[in-house]
């Protein structure tokens, strides 16, 4: 059905993060990892097992871990610290801002269990605001990969670039559809499907539903949608987005995140400046999450192909 991208089953993105860290560790002995007690959840446990001498358990102390990472980086190491995104983006917010971003140090932060799909734990653990926060930090690179393979590549790429980076990924198993050979370059959006009627720009686990929505739009509505995987929110790929606006004339964004300040806002900042076209935003609309099973919650919040199609039909009317 989707010519370039084939559904290859459900795999959690955090697995890509854990494996990416091990591969980085093999390549570079300066890679060190800091644990925040949930190493088995965000899968820094793989690195801990493989390189016990380069793993340090900091305990439940996200602010301390983040700042220790800055110290390690100022001593020539490449530290990764990961926790649930709710805690590795917010419990340490000041430390991210000053010790990491302002110092412009080579620290990488993993934000796992992000979004509503962390599920039954409920609102406290469902981080829906970190894109908004992190993309305002000067020097910060922010990546929200779409599936397992891409998370692995993003992790490796983050470890091999110089400067602060944050990788946001999830807990639940999500459709895997990219492979070893799919291109991934930080800052370069991937156009996954060509089309000139509307562009759907998505990140993270909303990319696959965007592809599904595009197929349905073409079959049932004769609308030919371009699908853009904007895996890097910062630095943003203005070129690909501006072209999409010019060639498609309408844009829908989709993210597992607050609408306010998220991927959609980042895209809008580019579009409004260069080529204003009608836009619609799919995301969580100014509320906290709540307990439920991941799929149940995605449907509850309309974060599915149906939700994307509704937004596309709405934006087409405004073209």
């Amino acid at each position: 059905m989707m010519n370039k991208y084939i559904y290859k089953g459900l795999v959690p993105t955090r697995k890509g993060f854990g494996e990416g860290l091990v591969e980085l560790g093999e390549r570079n002995s300066n890679i060190v990892v800091l644990g925040g007690d949930i190493t088995g959840s965000v899968l820094t446990s793989y690195f801990k097992e493989r390189f016990p001498d380069r793993f340090f358990s900091i305990g439940i102390a996200e602010a301390n871990a983040t700042t220790i990472a800055a110290g390690l980086a100022l001593s020539g190491k490449i530290p990764f610290f990961a926790s649930y995104s709710a805690f590795s983006a917010f419990r340490n917010a000041d430390q991210l801002r000053i010790s990491i971003a302002y110092n412009n140090v080579n620290v990488k932060i993993g934000g796992g269990h992000s979004g509503i799909t962390v599920g039954p734990d409920g609102a406290t653990h469902q981080s829906l605001e970190e894109i908004a926060f992190l993309r305002t930090l000067p020097n910060m690179t922010l990546i929200v990969p779409a599936d397992y393979n891409e998370t692995k590549k993003a992790t490796i790429a983050a470890g091999e670039m110089i400067g602060p980076a944050f990788i946001r990924f999830g807990r639940s198993a999500v459709p895997s559809f990219t492979d070893e050979n799919s291109s991934f370059e930080i800052g370069k959006a991937n156009v996954l499907r060509e089309g000139n009627d509307v562009a759907i720009v998505a990140c993270g686990l909303m990319v696959w539903p965007a592809l599904e929505a595009a197929e349905e739009l073409s079959e049932s509505y004769k609308i030919n949608a371009r699908v853009i995987n904007l895996h890097t929110i910062k630095p943003i790929d203005s070129f690909t987005l501006t072209n999409a606006a010019k060639e498609c004339g309408a844009i829908v964004t989709a993210e597992e995140h607050q609408i306010h300040g998220g991927l959609g806002s980042a895209v809008a900042e580019v579009i409004v400046k260069n080529t204003p076209v009608p836009m619609e935003f799919l995301g969580v609309n100014d509320r906290f999450g709540e307990s439920g099973e991941p799929d149940e919650l995605l449907n509850y919040f309309n974060l599915n192909p149906k939700g994307i199609i509704e937004k596309v039909l709405a934006v087409m009317k405004r073209k």
């Binding site: 039954p120 409920g122 653990h125 906290f288 709540e290 307990s291 439920g292 919650l297 509850y300």
Partner: peptide, 15 residues
């Protein structure tokens, strides 16, 4: 407990 729509959220919610 922990089911969609419950007051018994996975972690207590004042809301």
């Amino acid at each position: 407990l922990r089911k969609l729509g419950t007051r018994l959220q996975g972690h207590p919610g004042l809301d």
